[in-house]
C-alpha cells in the first residue's frame, strides 16, 4: 500500500532507516499495522495523522523507546533486536526531542547538553563544553547556559532540548510534536531552529501538526491512520491533491 517514494536528491544512496512490516500491539490493541517505510540520509520526513493513530509509537520504535513485536527495523545498518549493545549503538546515532522537553531539572542548561557527550561519547569536559556552548549559540540562547531548566520559558527549554540532542552529533533526529506544548508566540522560535537543523543536512523524522512547517521543509509526508501509513507523498501531492478519502477528511478538518 505505502510504496516508498524517494525524494530525488537521495535516490542513489542506501536508506538510513528501514522499516519492514513493523507490527506492534499494546495488549490486545493493534497500534502499528505493517508499517513499511525507508528513510534516506538527509531526508526530512514529516508524519501527520489524527490523534491516537500511532505516530508517536512509530517514531519511538525507531530508537527503541517502544519495542515492536513483528517486522524489522534497521537503523544505520544495525538491526534492532534484543541485543543491548545494538540498542545502545543505535541510540547514540539518534537524537530525540519530546513534546514535554524532558530536560533534566537538577542539571544546568550547560550540563544538560554536556551530559551525554561526556558519559556516552566519552568526550573530554573541555570538548563537550565547547560543543555545548556552540550549540546553545546556534539555538539562540547562549546567555542561558548557567541557568536551570526551571528558570527558562517553554520555547527556551525546547531549544535546549534540541541542543542536547544535537550535542551527540547524531545522524538522525526524531521530533515528536515539539511545538505542541508551547504557547503560540514560542512556536515560531522553535520551528526556526528546526528549519535551521534541516538545512544543515540532518536526516529527520518529525511528528507535527504544524502544516505550514511540514509544507516548507518536508521532502515527504507520511499520513497515519489507525496504525497504518494510509498515504505518502511530497507535501504538494499530499496537501494539494490527497488521494485517500481519510486523508481528505483529515486535511479538511485541520486546514
Amino acid at each position: 500500500m505505502s510504496d516508498v517514494t524517494h525524494s530525488e536528491n537521495t535516490a542513489s544512496a542506501e536508506p538510513i532507516i528501514i522499516c519492514r512490516k513493523v507490527n506492534k500491539w499494546f495488549g490486545e490493541f493493534h497500534v502499528l499495522r505493517d508499517v513499511t517505510v525507508d528513510v534516506m540520509p538527509r531526508e526530512v520526513v514529516v508524519v501527520i495523522g489524527p490523534s491516537g493513530s500511532g505516530k508517536s509509537t512509530f517514531i519511538r520504535c525507531i530508537n527503541r523507546l517502544e519495542e515492536h513485536q513483528e517486522g524489522e527495523i534497521i537503523v544505520d545498518n544495525i538491526t534492532m533486536g534484543h541485543d543491548i549493545r545494538n540498542i545502545a549503538a543505535i541510540r547514540r546515532e539518534i537524537g530525540m526531542v519530546f513534546q514535554q522537553f524532558n530536560l533534566f531539572p537538577h542539571l544546568t542548561v550547560l550540563n544538560n547538553v554536556m551530559l551525554a557527550p561526556m558519559n556516552v561519547r566519552r568526550w573530554s569536559k573541555e570538548k563537550a563544553e565547547q560543543k555545548a556552548r556552540e550549540l546553545l549559540d546556534r539555538v539562540g540562547i547562549p546567555e542561558q547556559a548557567e541557568k536551570y531548566p526551571g528558570q527558562l520559558s517553554g520555547g527556551q527549554q525546547q531549544r535546549v532540548a534540541i541542543a542536547r540532542a544535537l550535542a551527540m552529533e547524531p545522524k538522525i533526529m526524531l521530533f515528536d510534536e515539539p511545538t505542541s506544548a508551547l504557547d503560540p508566540e514560542m512556536v515560531k522560535e522553535v520551528l526556526d531552529v528546526m528549519k535551521e537543523v534541516t538545512s544543515s543536512g540532518m536526516t529527520m523524522v518529525c511528528v507535527t501538526h504544524e502544516m505550514g512547517f511540514a509544507r516548507e521543509v518536508a521532502d515527504r509526508i507520511l499520513f497515519f491512520d489507525q496504525g497504518r501509513i494510509v498515504e505518502t507523498g511530497t507535501p504538494e501531492q499530499l496537501f494539494d491533491n490527497p488521494q485517500h478519502p481519510r486523508t481528505k477528511l483529515f486535511l479538511s478538518q485541520i486546514l
Binding site: 523507546l65 541510540r91 524532558n102 551530559l115 556516552v120
Partner: peptide
C-alpha cells in the same frame, strides 16, 4: 517523571 527516563535512554545513557 517517565519522560526523564525516556530522555536519558534516548541519549544513550546506560
Amino acid at each position: 517523571p517517565r519522560g526523564q527516563l525516556e530522555a536519558a535512554r534516548a541519549l544513550g545513557l546506560s
